[in-house]
Design a protein around this nucleic acid. Structure first.
Length: 890
RNA sequence: GGUCUUAUAGCUCAGCUGGUUCAGAGCACCUGCCUUACAAGCAGGGGGUCCUAGGUUCGAAUCCUAGUGGGACCACCA
């Protein structure tokens, strides 16, 4: 078989993915084995794969494939999220392009469009995951709005309602004027903004323009029209909703306003001046305008002082009838206009540049309007309580653990969760209103009817009930994901939920720790009485190589599929992992995928070498090969233990680096060179079989990271049964390691490197063989290896004087000398040795200083002191040797 | 403003309980090589005030304090 010198991933990737699918290797059913479960963080159903997904799913696939190869029953459940607001926004946009307004459609008609859109774009992302090699059990693919999941959501809603944890009420909520819905606090993103602070004049009502002068410390504003207060605001357009002005009772400069009434500028409404310590004396003028309908804190004041609320906004952010002016105009247009109007009327004292934080809708990116409205809420106190302790006690572990703090902080300051959304795409709230007021909550309309009859004591028909128009927050379905995927809500205690729950690892970004992770933990304990997953691995955010967040608008995000095409899925997976230490942001650079691809090629070429050997059964195993096979077995086990340790700590990129070095350095650069027969010569059987065995083990270790090339080569090593795939093979266990063999080989490598170095420095061809003499206790067991790799014809312990023409170097305390005949430059050698002596003498000084310090000798641990003494002796003996050598050369 | 986190080679990061695994890895860089698996390669090499200033200690990259510079999250300023 002639193999190309370059590996071509495109030739093999789809073939093996299909093979895995055809043989059902991704499938999982409960059985007697230990389960290993991951549920995918469901991507938006209509989304496309981005680099964040690549990272996330690569990690999950590595964990799942590894678990499978450890003999566990690995189950990775894929699925998608209906993404209520995001998807609805997309559908609304698409309809708008066709000239259709959502408001012109009935709920049913709109949902038809939404489902059509979902079917058209849905699941693209899952297909893309296949290209990456994701070993999900596709038969289990879930969707947050499929039948099982929907039923679960409704059931949970009713249950929480019955438990008194869900309530309905008018509250100040975050209103998205574009999507026309309420949002939870978590869906609001605060951005710093350069805006203006407007100073408005509020004249004192019934003031004759003369009035008294201010007392000590008071600041009284006055002009021809009378006395006035100045209020600083960033939102002058809300003055139509002002129903009070507030000062701090401890504020001397505004004392004179106490008990007065003032006139809202332009609006001319007379409002009271109230006093509350909430007002910051230092801010602006210390006078606050109170608009209870449009600011959270003002609302609080309104409640406290029983102020009237005037809602001056329509749902879409335009000014409402209630405002009485600027009706129908947009809030931001009015802000500009009212500035002009106030100024003209002499009611604007000044404006100042000002930086403040403004809340934006996470999804539609419009400025959030705090708004009073009737919504459904979930009480969080109980749920927060049951979710906190397991994480703080590390029963449920976070990687990296620093996120425990973030988690605790959120849970300890949690507010009730606004779960209703004024959207159609989602789970409709199962609340039914009675004709004469009141409502009932039930899983089905029929049950609701029964309850309604009971409640009203009257005969009612289904058509008399009106179901709540709102639907639930997307996260109200995703928080059940680890349970609902195994139907644990509808069918408690079923075989699957018992087997797969709690799941093992959750891999996700820290950006959804509140949205999703925390809430899943709550739901897990509430509904299963147990954690939803044992470990949470938080990935970093994928950034470009100069640290900018990858985003569509910056155009700095590569298309994952293009990357796969260019470097192969294995190369890209490796590129992602090389750059991804846990918890730190990932500075993604295509060069890392290139490194991944190069590594693939390295593996490929190592395979070409091994596979190209011809075996001669008569041949005895050469000594060098025997040493090599024994040593590499040890090295292999050592690295396996290292890898296991890395995985335990979720240091996945370090695990990869360990295999990488094992394959490239130890196996390819050292081992293969040791056992490689001369050109076109056959190899002995024992070495050949050992080597193939090692190769296969290496492939297994690499498989979780690079599934495709490893399957390709696993199959190419020999003919295998249809069902014999590397992905269902078992990883070797780490066996006892003989450290002595390993350290002996390290010495051997150093000697070889030293000799190669001499050749390089002197320009002597590798073909010209050397003799080697040594002083010190060199273990001669590896001599055959030195002879082969350094082209040394003879190794001997130096007995007498070697004469002048030798190059000498030290490996530990062993002195290696290579006679060079005419190739030597005595002066150069002496100079080199003198430099070494200088260094050693400096070293000695520091060691002697330490040993001369009585406190050190008295206080340090004995072994440390002993070590220092040894260092001293070694250095002294080295210096003596070097000095003797110099003498001889001269 | 609060909480947390971080600073080590040109870049990205390891460095555990303070001491020979103590200054490391990968990449990048430099110098030789188209040597017979691999130039997507091989063999070598250079490169760091371990952020700054104090402190604890016989001994500090490591522990403590402060400062400076990054980053993250939360929160209230109209």
């Amino acid at each position: 078989m002639e193999l190309a010198s370059k590996y071509n991933p495109a030739d093999v990737e789809s073939k093996w993915y299909q093979y895995w699918l055809d043989n059902g290797f991704f499938k999982s059913k409960p059985d007697g084995r230990e389960p290993y479960t991951i549920v995918i963080p469901p991507p938006n159903v209509t989304g496309v794969l981005h680099m964040g997904h690549m990272l996330n799913n690569t990690i999950q696939d590595i964990l799942v494939r590894r678990a499978r190869m450890l003999g566990k029953n690995a189950c990775w459940v894929p699925g998608t999220d209906h993404a209520s607001i995001a998807t609805e926004a997309k559908v609304v946009n698409k309809l708008a392009q066709q000239g259709i307004k959502k408001s012109d459609l009935s709920r049913e008609e709109f949902l038809k469009h939404a489902w059509a859109w979902t079917e058209e774009h849905g699941g693209i992302i899952l297909k893309q995951l296949r290209k990456l090699g994701a070993s999900c059990d596709w038969d289990r693919t879930g969707f947050t709005m499929d039948e099982t999941r929907s039923k679960s959501v409704i059931k949970v809603f009713c249950d929480l309602y019955k438990k008194g944890l869900i309530y309905r009420g008018v509250r100040m909520v975050n209103w998205d004027p574009k999507a026309l819905t309420a949002l939870s606090d978590e869906e609001v993103i605060y951005k710093e903004e350069h805006s203006k602070l407007f100073y408005l004049k509020y004249y004192v009502a019934e003031d004759d323009g003369k009035g008294e002068t201010g007392a000590e410390g008071e600041v009284v504003h006055r002009d021809a029209k009378g006395r006035y207060a100045v209020v600083a605001t960033t939102r002058p357009e809300t003055i139509m909703g002002d129903t009070a002005m507030c000062i701090n009772p401890k504020d001397p400069k505004n004392r004179w306003l106490s008990g007065k009434k003032v006139i809202v500028p332009l609006v001319n409404r007379v409002i009271p001046v109230i006093e509350d310590e909430y007002v910051d004396i230092e801010f602006g003028t210390g006078c606050l305008k109170v608009t209870p309908a449009h600011d959270v804190n003002d609302y609080m004041l309104g409640e406290k002082y029983n102020l009237t609320t005037i809602d001056i906004f329509n749902d879409n952010g335009t000014i409402s009838q209630a405002a009485g002016m600027y009706v129908g105009q947009d809030r931001f247009d009015v802000r500009k206009q009212i500035e002009i109007d106030l100024d003209k009327a002499g009611l604007l004292e000044k404006t100042e540049a000002y930086t403040n934080k403004v809340g934006y809708s996470e999804r539609t990116n419009v400025v959030i309007e705090p708004k009073l409205s009737m919504q459904w809420f979930l009480k969080m106190e109980h749920l927060a309580k049951i979710a906190l302790e397991p994480v703080m006690k590390d029963e449920l572990k976070f990687f990296p653990p620093k996120y425990k703090n973030t988690y605790r902080n959120w849970l300890e300051n949690i507010k009730d969760w606004c779960i209703s959304r004024q959207l159609w795409w989602g789970h409709r709230i199962p609340a039914y209103f009675l004709p004469k007021g009141g409502y009932v909550v039930a899983e089905t309309a029929e049950e609701a009817l029964a309850l309604a009859k009971e409640k009203s004591g009257k005969e009612l028909k289904l058509s008399d009930l009106r179901q709540d128009e709102d639907c639930l927050d997307t996260w109200f379905s995703s928080w059940l994901w680890p349970i609902s995927l195994f139907d644990g809500i509808n069918n408690p205690g079923n075989e699957e939920i018992k087997y797969y729950y709690p799941t093992n690892d959750l891999v996700t970004g820290p950006d959804i720790i509140f949205f999703w992770v925390a809430r899943m933990i709550m739901a897990g304990y509430e509904y299963e009485g147990d954690m939803p997953f044992r470990n949470v691995y938080f990935t970093g955010i994928v950034r470009d190589k100069i640290g900018r967040k990858m985003s569509k608008s910056l155009g700095n995000s590569p298309d994952p599929l293009m990357l796969i095409e260019k470097f192969g899925a294995d190369g890209v997976r490796m590129g992602m992992m090389l750059s991804a230490p846990a918890g730190n942001d990932i500075l993604f650079d295509e060069a890392l995928c290139e490194q991944g691809r190069n590594f693939n090629n390295k593996i490929w070429n190592a395979f070409r070498l091994v596979k190209g050997w011809e075996v001669n059964e008569q041949l005895a195993q050469p000594a060098s090969a025997e040493i090599a096979t024994k040593w590499f077995g040890m090295q292999l086990n050592k690295t396996i233990a290292e890898i296991n340790d890395c995985f335990e700590k979720y240091r996945i990129s370090e695990a990869l680096m360990a295999v990488y070095k094992l394959f490239w350095d130890e196996f390819s650069s050292w081992y293969l060179e040791m056992v490689k027969p001369a050109y076109q010569q056959p190899i002995d059987k024992a070495t050949y079989e050992k080597t193939l065995g090692y190769f296969e083990t290496l492939l297994k270790l690499l498989h979780p990271f690079m599934p495709f090339i490893t399957e390709e080569l696993y199959q190419a090593i020999k003919d295998r049964d249809q069902k014999d795939s590397i992905m269902v093979s078992l990883l070797p266990k780490a066996e006892e390691v003989c450290e002595k063999k390993i350290s002996r080989m390290e010495t051997t490598k150093e000697i070889i490197a030293g000799i190669r170095n001499i050749r390089a420095e002197k320009g002597i061809s590798p073909r010209e063989s050397f003799e080697m003499y040594y002083k010190g206790d060199l273990d001669e067991k590896n001599n055959a290896v030195i002879e082969k790799l350094a082209n040394v014809s003879k190794i001997e312990k130096a007995t007498g004087d070697l004469g002048g023409a030798t190059a000498t170097f030290m490996v530990g305390t062993i002195e290696i000398s290579i006679p060079l005949g005419n190739n030597i430059n005595v002066e150069e050698e002496v100079k080199k040795m003198e430099e070494e002596i200088k260094y050693l003498e400096g070293f000695l000084v520091s060691v002697n200083k330490k040993l001369g310090n009585e406190k050190f000798v008295a206080n340090a641990k004995p072994e440390v002191v002993e070590n220092e003494r040894k260092k001293k002796a070694d250095a002294e003996s080295k210096i003596a040797t070097l000095k003797a050598n110099i003498e001889k050369m001269k």
